[in-house]
Simulated assay, not measured.
Amino acid sequence: MKTFINGLSLILPTALVLYLLVWILKMTEHFFGDLILLVLPKEYYITGLGFVAGIAIVFFVGLLLKLWIVQKLRDFFESIIDKTPLVNTLYGAIKDFFNFFSNLKNKENNIVVLVDTHWIDSKIMGFITSEDLKRFDFLDMEEPVVVYFQLSYQIGGYSLFIPKKNITLIDMKTEEALGFVMTAGISSSKKSEDK
């Protein structure tokens, strides 16, 4: 039985990752392939051209965003979205999600913390996301910071205002800490077993 579970523990995650990659490839190929077929005759179309076009367009947009005029157009577009109910919430949430995780991985030190939870004599791992809280001066707290707590095996978490005296900075890379939290410590246990 243990041998079967070991095999399943390798096959299942690999199959899920491959399925997700294939799904992304198919969606990208279908979407951009249809756009290409608007200007290119069907007999000249090669499977995979849509995916290559998708990668090229994303890269090109990334390059364009370095231009001042494009940044101004993006700001104008986002200002319209900000005034549109529901759309602004969805757009903002997706944008913030990507920005948060891309910024999180770039920060290596002074962000991973343990927060004291005195009521059950324990600590919870989190990430400092904001220390400049001047607009929250009304909080009845001594030196508050915002700490984000990632939920294990989920896309999401929650943020709390916490006094600095209740947190302890730990010497751990952000990416390593994020992996630890998202897998509920299992990824760290596996590394220890492998050694």
Rank of each mutant, 00 (worst) to 15 (best):
M1S: 07
M1W: 08
K2M: 09
I5M: 11
N6W: 10
S9Q: 04
P13M: 08
P13C: 05
T14Q: 02
A15Q: 08
V17E: 00
V17F: 14
L18N: 05
Y19V: 09
L20I: 06
L20V: 04
M27S: 14
M27R: 15
G33M: 00
G33R: 11
D34V: 10
L37V: 07
L40I: 15
K42G: 04
E43F: 11
G50I: 04
I57L: 12
L63A: 10
L64T: 01
L65A: 03
K66Q: 08
V70C: 08
D75V: 12
E78C: 14
I80M: 06
I81P: 05
K83P: 03
V87H: 07
Y91I: 11
G92V: 03
A93I: 06
F97K: 02
N99F: 10
F100V: 04
L104V: 03
N106Y: 06
N109T: 15
I111R: 09
L114V: 06
T117Y: 14
H118T: 04
H118L: 11
W119K: 14
S122D: 11
S122A: 14
S122T: 14
S130R: 15
D132W: 06
L133D: 07
D137V: 00
F138A: 13
E143K: 04
V145F: 04
F149I: 03
L151F: 09
Y158M: 02
Y158Q: 07
L160Y: 08
F161L: 12
K164T: 01
N166I: 02
I170G: 09
M172Y: 03
M172A: 05
E175Y: 14
E175R: 00
L178M: 15
T183C: 00
S187M: 06
K190T: 14
K195L: 15
K195S: 12
